[in-house]
Amino acid sequence: MAAPAQKQEGFYDCRDAWARTIEALAEEDPRIVAVVNDSVGSSKLGGFQKKFPDRLVNVGIAEQNMVGVGAGLANGGRIPFVSAASCFLTGRALEQLKADIAYAGFNVKLVGQSSGVAYGELGPTHHSIEDFAWLRPLDKITVVVPADSWETAEAVKWAAAHEGPVYIRLSRMPVPDLVVENRQFQPGKAEVVRKGSDVTLVACGTMVHLAVQAAADLQAEGISARVLNMATINPLDGAAIEKAASETGAIVTIEEANIHGGLGGAVAEHTAATLPVPVERMGFPGFVPTGSVEWLFDHFGLTAAGIARSARKAIGRKRA
């Protein structure tokens, strides 16, 4: 597997927060088990395995079986966290996610690791940029995309306590902690990271801190950009989108995913059906070329400067 991105001061791999939190929860609640597909290392579950060897079910390289086993463990009264690289968890086992988890409605937590283009150079087989489009229509599954370590820990704690299927989409890309006053994790609700009135930047996961930086840069040229952390992709916070449309009149969506059917697709669907405003969708248009994750972000404009450009474009498309 590709080496994780270079360590940067103040940037943290959210998988560490996931691992710490699941271990702590498992100490408290004996019903919590982990299910993996030979993915102990990539899921950072080595510590969990050491503490709870019996409660880590490793089915080997068999994703359909892994997800079905998760459903069965829930039937047997356990709270399974099924953790695997999200490209395989969602792609290989999609029919199990549909029939065994979403349709059957089992209390299973799915944790997609190293999502998006985290495995940059390994190519599109190992990228997970289609997962939003695949999971959004499976309406019983709550899809959560934490933006930093704090939100990762909160999302895992919430998922453990919530009765129902959840998909938590993690990256291995180190990200800084967001600065938000009186922070509270609210599933299904957009988090206002920054107030603004000229345009709204709607981002999730690894893209949120870049949107914050873009908003600061835009401020310097007199543009007031609101930043929403849309940590829950499904169900979408439609009210926050309508508010953004009516109060700022233009929206930019930013996601480490395919724009078709993902966050951008969801926001475009919602605004078209309620309050149409210009929506600029940032992300990937399809399979991406070979390159490191940093190169890919840069190539597709997923940088503070690129987001600022899209913001200006969206503002320019507003009706006079």
């Binding site: 079910v57 459903a71 039937n75 047997g76």
Partner: peptide, 22 residues
Amino acid sequence: TNTGPLGHGMPVALGIAIAGQL
């Protein structure tokens, strides 16, 4: 559990049996 598409019952039943073992 909900079935219909073939090949789904065995893994789910396996998970139930593992829960029993645990």
